[in-house]
Write a protein that binds this DNA or RNA. Structure first.
Lengths: 193, 193
DNA sequence: GTCTATAGAAAGATAGAC
DNA sequence: GTCTATCTTTCTATAGAC
């Protein structure tokens, strides 16, 4: 047996790693399977031994990208406090995230892209979104359940919207104003919740 | 002269009309020039008599879509009051806007799509965004300039983020919770500004 | 499991007739 | 100005050798 099970697993990991990075940065349609596999150090033909089609790798890449991004932004911190939430917001709503993040958040970088794709892709996106809501909720001091959930969801829209729009804008100073406005609004909302 | 200047203008309008609708709904890459022209009642070959390439029609379609959308959501109302702002928010952050709008807001429907395109496309997007900021500002009662601008920009992120994410989510009830949360958070922010 | 080769479809852009 | 026809490139997906 020239190829072990571990070898296949390693290849699969490399493909997913390339996929989450490339799709996030260039968009789904702009990345061909050839690009993907070359980036992963393999060739086109090997692709279909790991995934049934392009949509499948996309759906999985979204999950993968979310985990990598969580680690990068420090979302994985388990401390439950307003402090840690502020850190999360500062990291997320930052120029660094927009320009130099090797692992940006797929929720922000792929919002529009996902809306028109096949079911399994939007399913992945939804799962990652629910996770963000949960993650913020765990760090928030207890309060009335409904207001809390409302506040959290509004904050997710600010985070995702702020980064997505900031990335689209051609003016860096305008984008920076937007990011700063989002940070301070999000903090206020969470403090009141 | 078999074709008048007005005729060319009419064709151009029809192409832009088709472009803003199709790009918004399906995304830039998923719409071919063939689709575009067929929708406008013309054929492929005629396209290049109106635009130099696909990116150019995209840049112009974003502007066009923004004007149509403004009329649809009632953004064009000139009354300057918190009332009219609430109407704007209700129309924008609605299921109707996400599902059945013939003329959705390109800021929300094309955010991600724009980030990786050519300069002129992002330029159009930025122009439309500045316009939204201005439009909200005109309807807001006077206050300290800086806080006002911060509030306005945070609200734009909530609007765009709420609609964009709501469209991506596979669960309608989750999306509706998100929309409601965004509406109430945006109102609170504007009332405090 | 990964490779090369290729089938088959689609898209952007151009040429020339009317 | 708009049409049909076509060049050229690119892409997804499959086939078959190793």
């Amino acid at each position: 047996m020239p190829y072990t099970k571990e070898h296949k697993q390693k290849s699969r990991e490399r493909i997913l790693e390339s996929a989450s990075r490339l799709f996030s940065h260039r968009g789904y349609a702009a990345v061909s399977i050839d690009d993907l596999m070359r980036d992963a150090g393999l060739t086109r033909g090997a692709f279909y031994n790991h995934f049934s089609d392009k949509a499948e790798v996309y759906a999985e890449a979204i999950i993968h990208a979310a985990m990598r991004s969580a680690r990068a932004v420090g979302k994985a911190t388990e401390s439950s406090s307003l402090e840690s939430l502020h850190d999360l917001l500062s990291g997320y709503l930052s120029r660094e995230h927009i320009d130099n993040s090797g692992h940006p958040c797929p929720l922000a970088f792929l919002v529009t892209d996902v809306g028109t794709r096949e079911f399994k892709v939007r399913e992945s996106y939804t799962r990652v979104y629910r996770n963000l809501v949960r993650l913020i909720g765990k760090r928030l001091p207890p309060a009335r359940a409904k207001d809390r959930r409302e506040a959290i969801m509004a904050v997710t829209a600010i985070m995702i919207g702020g980064v997505a729009v900031g990335r689209a804008l051609i003016s860096a100073t305008l984008a920076d104003q937007l990011l700063a406005s989002c940070r301070s609004a999000a903090r206020r909302i969470l403090e009141q919740a």
